[in-house]
């Protein structure tokens, strides 16, 4: 029952050949098997959103999907947002500029949530942005600066 299965994950454009038990969640596989610890685990039951990653471009909870389900899926994590330290993704830059984080634990999840939805459609209304940001929990900021940062990133990303 505890046998591992070989698995190829495509994370941030790179192949990771790993071997995991079927019960390994994607979040744990990213952290433990791919050594990508930018994806954080908070509640492990889909409520807090800290582990949000993009699956084929769409935000999803990495704690609510097993790694074995992700073969053939393009996975993007916070490590894949910017090409290098000098050129942050517009969402990362906006969180920096607008103080959209304090302790930083929830930040990778918020960055992926915002990046995924804004890359799909940067023209989202304020009401939509509030609704989308309600998906994740932050215990420090009070959300206002996260909203301000996401608004600013949206403005930056519009054509």
């Amino acid at each position: 029952m505890t046998a591992t299965v070989p698995l190829r994950l495509l994370v941030n454009g790179e192949r990771h050949d790993i071997s995991v038990e079927p019960r390994r969640t994607l979040a744990d596989a990213l952290r433990e098997d791919c050594q990508l610890t930018g994806t954080h685990l908070g509640c492990e039951h889909g409520v807090c959103g800290a582990c949000t990653v993009l699956l084929d471009g769409q935000p999803a909870r990495a704690c609510l999907i097993f790694a074995v389900q992700c073969e053939g899926v393009s996975i993007r994590t916070v490590e894949g947002l910017s090409a290098d330290d000098e050129n942050l993704h517009p969402v990362q830059q906006a969180f920096w500029d607008h103080h959209g984080l304090q302790c930083g634990f929830c930040t990778p999840g918020f960055l992926m949530l915002a990046a995924g939805t804004l890359e799909e459609d940067p023209e989202r209304s304020d009401e939509e942005l509030r609704d989308i940001l309600s998906s994740n929990l932050c215990r420090c900021t009070g959300y206002q600066n996260i909203l301000a940062a996401t608004r600013a990133a949206a403005a930056q990303m519009r054509p």
């Binding site: 889909g46 959103g49 949000t52 699956l55 769409q58 935000p59 999803a60 909870r61 609510l64 999907i65 949530l113 939805t117 609704d131 989308i132 309600s134 998906s135």
Partner: peptide, 12 residues
């Protein structure tokens, strides 16, 4: 549909 969970739940 808009009332089902949150967006990252609705995508899956």
């Amino acid at each position: 549909a808009a009332l089902v969970g949150h967006l990252p739940i609705r995508t899956r």
